[in-house]
């Protein structure tokens, strides 16, 4: 009986995110003119999956008590790369996919190297590397363009068996291949531990550097997967600063909605994935209620503001005023 209570407490954030998403999606579908058809689900899934990849990337870094403000730019860079590399014969396209994912991982690993071995603050480091990645993206695609292997793109964004969205299956595969092994590995536990109490983790001899480095590198991989899917959806590559910053911003919103603590050490990428899907659904809610699309940025900003402000309820539990200052 006890065990269950602990398990429940550990997964509370994820469960709340799932509940928010289920509620929001029900309202969304109930008011959607087309109702619950596989096309509506597919469109919603495709939009949500992009953000879910970036949110997963953000989670990996946030659990180490860091932040990655370059995830959106890694996505933009890999989008531009994919629009140049994932073309030609199936073999070339396959190698292109690997190259794009490797580039994403490399970007993440660079962030990790600078933050961990250069001992710099993650915020400013990733703002700066984000500018570098965006510059590289602009070098690759000064103007929007390029193309992508269309058979592959259609397969990844279509429906499996005419019903289930393929993008959701791809997302589940990435979660199963990246997040699950990482969070159960020694390095993954070390990443969690360094996020909640770095000193204690160090004293216990955990490999915190390796754990944090892996977290940053895998974050790059996830953001790269996001960039790849962005290319599959749009068929082009575009170095758009606005969309890069927007994805970074929304990834933080998704992480917060997904019950991941911004102070590190708590949370799950699965929660963040549901946070991302919920955030997208809330954002799209305006359309089914016939609001002007102009209100969407304000609405999304307000969701983020409210979500982060809810964290302040923890202050009510503070007994000693000195605990305000960590």
């Amino acid at each position: 009986m006890r065990e269950w209570r602990y398990l429940l407490a550990e997964q509370r954030g994820t469960l709340v995110a799932m509940a928010i998403f289920a509620l929001m999606f029900t309202i969304y579908v109930a008011n959607h003119p087309a109702g619950l058809t596989s096309n509506v689900v597919q469109t919603a899934a495709n939009k949500g999956v992009l953000l879910a990849f970036v949110a997963m990337a953000q989670t990996l870094v946030v659990i180490t008590a860091g932040i990655d403000l370059s995830v959106g730019m890694i996505m933009v860079l890999t989008n531009c790369l994919a629009s140049a590399l994932v073309v030609g014969t199936p073999l070339q396209a396959g190698l292109g996919v690997i190259a794009v994912l490797a580039a994403g991982t490399l970007c993440g690993a660079l962030n990790g190297t600078i933050v961990i071995y250069g001992r710099l603050q993650p915020i400013v480091t990733t703002i700066a590397t984000g500018a570098i990645y965006f510059g590289l993206a602009l070098l690759i695609r000064p103007f929007p363009g390029g193309s992508v292997h269309e058979v592959l793109a259609d397969a990844m964004t279509g429906k499996i068996g005419g019903v289930f969205p393929a993008s959701i299956a791809a997302l589940a595969a990435v979660v199963a291949l990246v997040w699950v092994p990482f969070s159960r590995s020694l390095a993954g536990r070390a990443a969690f531990a360094s996020g909640s109490a770095e000193q204690a983790a160090y004293m216990s001899g955990l490999p915190i550097r390796r754990g944090r480095f892996l977290a940053y590198a895998l974050a790059g991989l996830c953001a790269g997967a996001g960039g790849l899917f962005l290319t599959f959806f749009t068929y082009t590559g575009e170095a758009a600063q606005v969309s890069g910053s927007a994805y970074t911003l929304f990834s933080i919103a998704a992480v917060v909605l997904g019950g991941v603590s911004l102070y590190g050490g708590r949370g799950s990428a699965i929660g963040a994935v549901f946070g991302a899907l919920a955030f997208r659904t809330i954002g799209d809610m305006l359309f089914v209620f016939d609001f002007d699309a102009l209100w969407q940025p304000l609405f999304q900003g307000l969701i983020l503001m409210v979500a982060v402000s809810l964290g302040a309820f923890g202050l009510l539990r503070v007994r000693n005023r000195l605990d305000w200052f960590r």
């Binding site: 600078i114 250069g118 710099l120 603050q121 400013v124 480091t125 703002i127 700066a128 590397t129 984000g130 500018a131 570098i132 965006f134 510059g135 590289l136 993206a137 602009l138 070098l139 000064p142």
Partner: peptide, 16 residues
């Protein structure tokens, strides 16, 4: 593009 990259590099080098 070059300006963005140089800005980023300058910040990181100075911070290091």
């Amino acid at each position: 593009a070059g300006r963005q990259i140089i800005h980023g590099l300058v910040i990181i080098v100075m911070l290091l």
